[in-house]
Nucleic acid binder design. Structure first.
Length: 429
RNA sequence: GCCGGGAUACCCUAGCCUGGUAGGGGGCUGGCUUGCUAAGCCCGUGUCCAGCAAUGGACUCGGGGGUUCAAAUCCCCCUCCCGGCGCCA
């Protein structure tokens, strides 16, 4: 959510930034917001004046009563003030609701470095790493590899839970836990505090983290409760400090969340329908930072660097793209995606999404900081990035580490986490 | 799920029965004074609106509604925390 104070101070700057979204509806809402705010402030001033009158009379009544004097004159004077306040208040409420409606729907201001573009095809590649392996045999995709090695059961998952679910089996379960534990160690070595968050959260807290459209398209609701399943630990880590004033001297706070992620994938019909690449449930180790505004560009680079070093350590070839305006979404001011080469698809595919959300989530979640107790508060900046979404990372490992005999080499850094196991091969039955 | 006790500013706490300026302590901040491991005193401490500013006004006692000229205080609903009982991996 944009800070209404910033909009009041410099509406032109906000407007011209929103204009880069190339969406006339956004500008229309913005202009409406300005008008509503004017009305709201007018009514606010009126009630303020009425309350002031009422408080004065009330005080006089108290004084007269103490002296045992007659107050009926004063009571008459005060009689119709409450009704007038109520009347104007209800108008204020009306404008406040209209403003909130728009504020909840306006996107974040974009960083100047965000490239203009329509969709993901316009994202700009900023670097590539690693060599794409050449195969002298016919490569399989992760589905064939996993089925041939009996590492997944997707048909029975469909019977039990429906499409986009899976059972992991055997060594793939071990590999999953190895990736999680390796990811956790990787982050704690870099000073990130690990968290295992609640997997469900209240609507109010979740609204602080995601756009309203996400409730429709990605978030699962628990029936009969004010609870939603987290789509990433990012949501829960942000909520951790909602309505708090943080000590500026302790920023940045660098956190790392590990949790399952639940997603409806409602807008993805027909895309990646096979295997475990795009699924309703997966595990993820997530990076999350609360920092001062001036620190967020630096922290953003740190997060993508961590993710890159993680995938470098797995020796998986990747590229980093600067996500364009049309693909950026509502919340982020700037976003990098890290895409790993998948031999089975012959494409780079998204493994990591690394966002600087500036103050957008902090305003919604009311998370501020100050260096000294008497200073005015400011909103923090928040950033989040995947370190590793393990099911997707396993797709990359299966396809990149496949051998001619159908077995899979375990990446070196994971072997200790697999109790010394260095390959995954079919068990003779 | 049931019974009881709670939630007051950055922290602790009084006030609630009996409605009438939210009081005290700690912390922090700025200022002043006195000067031996420092002490004392004073202003300030959250949010919003108007104003260039000084400042003025309003709001704020877990949240929402109600009664009243006036609500931390009375009434109704809800949330969370603590204790006990019940259930339980």
């Amino acid at each position: 959510m944009l800070d209404i104070k910033l909009i009041r101070e410099d509406p032109e700057r906000v407007r011209s930034n929103l204009a880069r979204r190339d969406d006339p509806e956004i500008l229309r809402m913005f202009d409406e917001l300005i008008e509503y705010d004017k009305s709201w402030r007018k009514y606010f001033a009126e009630t303020n004046e009425l309350r002031s009158q009422r408080n004065r009379i009330t005080e006089e009544i108290a004084k007269l009563k103490k002296q045992g004097l007659d107050v009926s004159e004063k009571l008459k004077e005060a009689a119709n003030i409450p009704a007038r306040i109520k009347e104007i208040e209800s108008k204020m409420q009306e404008y406040r609701e209209k403003m909130d409606f728009i504020l909840m729907r306006l996107p974040n201001l974009m960083d100047d470095s965000v490239p203009f573009g329509k969709d993901e095809n316009d994202n700009v590649v900023i670097r590539t790493w690693g060599e794409i392996r050449t195969f002298d045999f016919k490569v399989k995709d992760h589905i064939d590899l996993a089925l041939d090695l009996d590492l997944v059961d997707i048909e029975r998952a469909a019977k039990v839970s429906g499409a986009r679910f899976y059972y992991l089996k055997g060594d793939l379960v071990k590999l999953n836990f190895a990736l999680i534990k390796y990811g956790l160690d990787f982050m704690t070595e870099r000073g990130f505090t690990p968290f295992l968050p609640p997997y469900m959260m209240k609507r109010k807290i979740l609204e602080g983290a995601v756009s309203l459209a996400d409730f429709q398209d990605t978030i699962y609701k628990v029936e009969g409760e004010d609870l939603f399943l987290i789509a990433t630990s990012e949501h829960a880590l942000l909520g951790l400090h909602s309505d708090e004033i943080l000590d500026g001297n302790r920023l940045p706070l660098r956190y790392c969340g590990v949790s399952p992620c639940f997603r409806k994938e409602a807008g993805a019909h027909g895309r990646d329908t096979k295997g475990i690449f795009r699924v309703h449930q997966f595990e993820k180790v997530e990076q999350f930072v609360f920092c001062k505004p001036e620190e967020s560009p630096r922290e953003h680079e740190l997060l993508i660097k961590n993710a890159e070093e993680f995938f470098q350590s797995l020796k998986l070839p990747y590229r980093v793209v600067n996500v364009c305006s049309g693909d950026l979404g509502t919340v982020a001011a700037k976003k990098y995606d890290l895409e790993v080469w998948l031999p089975g698809q012959g494409k780079y595919r998204e493994m990591v999404s690394c966002s600087n959300c500036t103050s957008y989530q902090a305003v919604r979640s009311n998370i501020r900081f100050r260096d000294k107790p008497n200073e005015p508060t400011k909103y923090v900046h928040t950033l989040n990035s995947t370190l590793v979404a393990t099911e997707r990372a396993m797709v990359a490992i299966l396809e990149n580490y496949q051998q001619e005999d159908g077995s899979i080499i375990v990446p070196n850094v994971l072997i200790p986490y697999m109790n010394g196991q260095d390959s995954i091969r079919s068990v003779s039955k």
